[in-house]
Design a protein around this nucleic acid. Structure first.
Ligand SMILES: [Mn+2]
Ligand SMILES: [Mn+2]
Ligand SMILES: [Zn+2]
Ligand SMILES: [Zn+2]
Lengths: 134, 134
DNA sequence: ATCATAAATGCGAATTATTCGCAATTAGAA
DNA sequence: TTCTAATTGCGAATAATTCGCATTTATGAT
């Protein structure tokens, strides 16, 4: 199957297809990394309203199309998530690397917690990348 | 060895021992769970200045005495961390459970990333606790 | 014990990210 | 095409956190 367009993705998730939504989702897909709301606005060429962008992001997150992370920073970052994954972030230069490493939350819930199931998890690693380790 | 007092802890980390610092650290130790800056101020009986509390928290975090988490919420939470651990949070009622489960970041860095070492990581689980699963 | 000095505090004002209220617009169903 | 609920745009409002600066305080040296 070929990759779905932003419009199709929105429709698949039962969302009205508006141009802001298409643009935001498209920008997120292009970015291929976590990006903050304001940076997203810049990427869109300033034509979109910031409140609308925030509302759009909330919607996309609620549908699971986009993953929201609150790093140590105080602003939220949003990433289009075609496939679940995590990041390793360099605390010196901000370089971000994707990692396939994950954890089996289902098994884990039984072994290590009293919850029957775990719906989601946040996992981020911090270190100094090889370039910054002189 | 018996448990160190807040004052001793501060001294051990090369920090000036002030009453706000002792109070904040003490409150965090008592709380035994992540707590936000303002809640901390309440716990301290309103006598401490919020800007000072924030500065104190930054300091404690920088020394590794306290662990800062930015959940999905927009406010940061701080927890005294005698021993590294993570949480399982119920998205219905907010119940928070500690879990011993962790990951071996050293081994991991070699296997799954290009970083030589990983200094820290954030790991939080979200689900619905048994009480909320009617 | 007193002093000197850098560090910490308190206060108010400033910033920053995010949300809200509401009138105007628009997507999609009928 | 028409109708209506959902979405947008704008500006103003919130909420969390930080900043500037004058004042106080902890601690090391005398
Ligand atoms: Mn990624
Ligand atoms: Mn804990
Ligand atoms: Zn995962
Ligand atoms: Zn861990």
């Amino acid at each position: 199957m070929k990759k779905a367009t932003p419009g199709e993705l929105l429709r698949q998730h039962g969302l009205k297809v508006t141009s802001t939504r298409k643009d935001v989702l498209d920008a997120l897909i292009m970015a291929r990394k976590p990006i903050a709301a304001e940076a997203l606005q810049d990427a869109l060429g300033k034509n979109a309203d910031i409140a609308t962008i925030y509302r759009t992001l909330q919607t996309l997150v609620s549908k699971g199309l986009v993953y929201q992370t609150n790093f140590r920073d105080r602003k939220a970052h949003y990433e289009y998530q075609e496939k679940h994954h995590h990041h390793v972030v360099c605390t010196e230069c901000g370089t971000r690397e994707e990692t396939k490493l994950c954890i089996d939350a289902k098994k884990l819930a039984r072994t290590f917690t009293n919850f029957r199931t775990l719906d989601s998890h946040v996992l981020e690693f911090f270190g100094v990348c090889n370039k910054c380790t002189t």
